[in-house]
Amino acid sequence: MNWLLEPLTYEFMQRGLLASVIVGVLCAVMGTYVVPRGMAFLGDAMAHAILPGVAIAYILRGDLLIGAGVAAVIIALSIGFFSKEGTVKEDTAIGILFAAALSLGVALISTMQTYAVDLSHILFGNVLGVSVSDLWLIGGLSLGILLIVVLLFKPFLVISFDPVLAATLRLPAELLRNLMLVLLALTVVVSLQTVGVSLAAAMLVTPAATAYLVTRRLAPMMLVSALIGAVSSVIGLYISYYFNIVSGSSVVLTATAIFMLAFLWKRVRAKG
């Protein structure tokens, strides 16, 4: 049991573990809206699209998370704007904006004289560098997002499944759709600290895809997905501690391993 407790004697490990679990759960829950709609691409796009925000915040010596948050919200609302009433298909709008934002981000970064450590942390995460104030920010934002998801469970279900019913029930569909995109964007921002821009999309997609294999209803899918997200975060962090691997990678690889198991189980069951 000592090997389980030993890492917890370090405060940075306690904070890192807490942050990972929160982010794991949040991403996993939000992913349940992304995966069935075939919008796995969105998470990836969103994660890269916030790069210019981070770069600008870095140049201005501001808080990188706030820069990321502002960029994420702008991108989310732009996607909603361009795909409004089907002018441009949603995935096309995402593709265009994602590439543009990523290019802008790279352009901004290339003007800098030195790439500091901070920036690499944004790309790959730095879960062991989570400060107490970071933890408050992550916890507060996550709680807020999850609360909205719970309160708006039914409207979100209807606009995702059947937009026409949403219209007959007089739901403000466009507003809800934009809100959903903003929540997704904020989720990506929250996960920067633990898994980084490059792996945030994986945390959004992999646990939800696993849950999609084993459940048939949205609410249970969210719970299973959240559990997978939390478990992968804990196991991943221990692996990172003992084998000295980047934590983001070990968390994502753990989630992937669980996905593989579920996939095999499903295959075996379908044949048997």
Binding site: R37, G38, R217, L218, M221
Partner: peptide
């Protein structure tokens, strides 16, 4: 108009 892959019974 409907997303048939959505996890609903």
């Amino acid at each position: 108009d409907v997303d048939w892959r959505f996890p609903v019974t």
